[in-house]
Design a binder for these strands. Structure first.
Lengths: 243, 243
DNA sequence: CGATAGTTTGATCTTCGTCAATGGGGGTGG
DNA sequence: CCACCCCCATTGACGAAGATCAAACTATCG
């Protein structure tokens, strides 16, 4: 999912075209024809959220579909001890809100912008209208809900792992898959999350993350560059930690 | 989901009718008319699995839909340290296999009978045929996949809880919801799982489960009756532990 | 260049896992 | 009908690993 639209020029274009690009970007609408795409686009309202701003809160009435157009959004709940448990990191092309469209009336989690984020919003009614006109979208929703199930199952798998090092390895590997930039022998990883968020993802404290990343660096598996960049030096060794 | 068909008489009927009852029992097929129901029934193959028998294995080719007709089935994976991580407990009326029907070719988890189990099996091809004839089933699949997502999200929530007592409380509460029999002031809970399985569900050891259940008993919150029965004495206190 | 939020490091405490021994209940065979 | 056995659960002692609290450090941005 390497963002064309995250370049500034294109995001300019996005504004001009009133969200058309974001509709094409979302896999849900990829199959639509030009005219239908226009119908979707006309119903979309674009919004910008700046870094750390909340997109919605747990308990909010769920009456919209949110399509991520640019940036990243973290979806999380608070657990018993008041810490965030991150469930998903959504990027460009992903969408959320669907679950509640057919069933729930309240959102079951919080959504917060990680970057500066541009989101296309579609009301529940409009969305259902679109589905009626294009029933094949329902199948795509099903598809994407399976993707979500898979993500959750592997998160469960990871959380059930006692060994914290294995959990971190798993987290890094999944980030590499999503956001990694392969070099000649190394892989550059621009972390979308702070240490604290990393910790919240795999259910440990930020101190533990620090220590474990430190020891992975000592072992020569990776190199930490500032707070937001990690260079993976030995992918195989990292995979070994996870398996 | 209180089982009519788990009574012996009815399960006799099930055999005679060649699976018709199991088709009606499954929410997927509830909307079907008599004639369509018959079409489904004719394609179903019933199988019995005895306690602890495996229904399928992770990595098996996924070419069937499994509808639970009687009994309970646990769905699990093995994690890095070789222990089971239980993902779902399926009972009568639930089904599994759907996820792989449209996408994967390999099952991503193991299924094992907890009780003596009766399962109706439907091939992938037959199922797709049925969906074509009854498109409204697709929507039900979507619905049930949302249910699954909810289950997983709350499992994640629970696993991310450091406090083991809270995790156990959460597990008990979810069992109460599914299998609890309310009395006058107490709630009787017939556990579907062994101590070891309970432990595998929330990612701790069986010894820890024993100790924590013991201390909940000491606090007067519940009473242990043998290995498979728990009487909940103070539901509010239990909920307090979870919140 | 300085302020500040985020990160790392250290020392101590708590909790759960591990290993080993004991206990009990249900089913089977005498 | 009882005794025995086996499986499962419980209990105890100990150690390891991560949480917590506190302090030092550093990246980043104005």
């Amino acid at each position: 999912m390497n963002s064309i639209c995250s370049q500034s020029t294109d995001s300019e274009a996005c504004k001009r075209c009133k969200g058309r690009y974001c509709a094409t970007k979302v896999s849900l609408f990829k199959s639509l024809e030009e005219s239908q795409l226009k119908a979707v686009t006309d119903r979309i309202v674009q919004k910008n959220y700046e870094k750390n701003q909340m997109v919605f809160f747990e308990g909010d009435k769920s009456d919209k579909l949110y399509l991520i157009n640019r940036g990243k959004v973290k979806i999380f709940k608070y657990n018993r001890d008041g810490k965030e448990q991150i469930l998903y990191i959504l990027s460009e092309g992903d969408f959320i809100g669907d679950i509640s469209l057919f069933k729930q009336v309240e959102l079951r989690f919080n959504a917060q912008a990680i970057d500066d984020v541009n989101i296309c919003e579609l009301t529940k009614d409009d969305f259902e209208e679109i589905i009626k006109e294009n029933p094949e979208i329902a199948l795509k929703i099903l598809q994407s809900s399976y993707d979500r199930i898979e993500k959750l199952e592997s998160l469960v798998q990871s959380l059930s792992n006692k060994d914290v090092e294995a959990r971190i390895a798993g987290l890094l590997l999944s980030f590499i898959k999503d956001f990694g930039v392969p070099g000649e022998s190394e892989i550059l990883l621009n972390l979308p999350l702070s240490r604290e968020d990393l910790a919240n993802y795999i259910g440990v404290t930020r101190e533990t993350i620090s220590r474990k990343l430190g020891s992975l660096q000592d072992e020569g598996i990776l190199r930490l560059e500032g707070n937001k960049r990690i260079v993976i030096l030995d992918l195989e060794a990292l995979e070994e930690k996870y398996i």
